[in-house]
Amino acid sequence: MALLENAVNLLVPLANDDGGFHGPTINEFFPEVIFFADTPFEMNRIILIRFLAVAVLILVFWIGTRRMKIIPTRMQSLAEMGLDFARVNIAEDILGKKDGKRFLPLITTMFFMVLFMNLTGVIPGLNIAGTSVIGVPLVLAVISYVTFIYAGLKKHPGTFLRNSLFPPGVPPALYIIVTPIEFISTFIIRPITLTLRLLMNMVVGHLLLVLFFAATQFFFFATDGGFKLFGVGTLVFGFAFTLFEVLIAVLQAYIFALLTAVYIQLALAEEH
Rank of each mutant, 00 (worst) to 15 (best):
L4S: 01
E5R: 12
N6V: 12
N9V: 08
L10R: 14
L14K: 12
N16P: 02
D17L: 10
D18P: 04
G19P: 02
G23E: 05
E32G: 14
V33I: 15
I34K: 11
D38G: 08
T39Y: 03
E42F: 08
R45D: 11
I49V: 14
I49R: 13
F51V: 04
L52S: 05
V54D: 12
V56H: 02
F61I: 04
I70L: 09
P72W: 01
P72K: 04
T73P: 01
R74G: 07
R74P: 00
A79R: 13
E80A: 10
G82K: 12
E92D: 09
D93I: 08
L106R: 11
F111S: 10
F116H: 06
F116M: 14
L119R: 13
V122W: 07
V122I: 15
G125K: 14
L126E: 03
N127I: 07
G130C: 11
S132E: 14
I134R: 00
P137D: 02
A141M: 02
A141W: 00
K154C: 04
P157Y: 02
G158V: 01
R162D: 03
N163F: 08
P172D: 14
P180V: 15
I188V: 14
I192H: 00
I192F: 02
I192S: 02
T193Q: 14
M200W: 10
N201A: 08
V204E: 08
L208R: 10
L211Y: 06
F212L: 15
A214D: 09
F218W: 15
F219I: 01
F220I: 02
G225C: 05
V232K: 14
V232D: 10
G233I: 14
F237H: 07
G238E: 07
T242G: 12
T242I: 14
E245N: 12
E245H: 10
A249D: 06
Y254M: 06
F256M: 15
Y263A: 00
L268D: 01
E270Y: 01
H272G: 03
